[in-house]
Amino acid sequence: MILEFNDVCFGYKDRTILKNISFGVREGECTAIIGPSGCGKSTLFRLINRLEKPQSGSILYRGQPIESAGNITAFMPQRDLLLPWRTVLKNVTLAFELKKQRDKKPEAYSLLERVGLKGYENVYPSELSGGMKQRVSFARTLAVGGELMLLDEPFSALDSLTRADMQDWLMAQMSQLDKTVLLVTHDIDEAMLLGNTILLMSGEPVDKLISTDVSYIKTREDIYKASQLREKLLSELETEGHR
């Protein structure tokens, strides 16, 4: 396991969000985390990003405490959070600048080419569509270079058609990348399509993550073939939402 949560508890003030949760993430896989709104999906990322510390329990990266692991994550937030005063290229090079890596323009150019935005280097974010902005955000995430990619509902702000396009696009990207991906989403189809494993956050507060293997689902057609599993996950998600 590249990442392990062992009996992790976390909460804000009087509200417990995660109660003794344990799970592991396999290297090179995409693990989709689903759960009802406000259950603590993004909190998991805050803990992995070390923006918060667990109140008890431990988070291990390659068997070592995550606190001492250096820059291992590359985080893609829900909204693109591109800097409006920087061009597309400079938004991508920002990740290099913050690591004090100079002369990385060629890498930034190639990342933009990879995400299909060649020719848009000197354009400001405001001139891009929602889907294009998310692709720049993805390129910036790749530029960060962490082994663990944390994608927090990356397409939730997009319309359904663009979202479907972006999901297909991301699936193709992930197959070429040697990365371990954690994807937070509330969209069952997205989780089934992109994930190898789905972790359903269960309980109020969350006290377990129910794991489901979906590695055999490779296309949208597969999702409909696995309709029983889809229905089961939907009903479980609905049950969790009503808690």
Binding site: T73, P77, L83, W85, L98, V144
Partner: peptide, 29 residues
Amino acid sequence: SKRESEELFQTMGASKAAIFLKLKLPGAL
């Protein structure tokens, strides 16, 4: 400057000075 932008900078390993110079200051111009 949005808290989530500052946190994104933190996840990218930005120092407080870098957050000020590359996020807050240009945003305040």
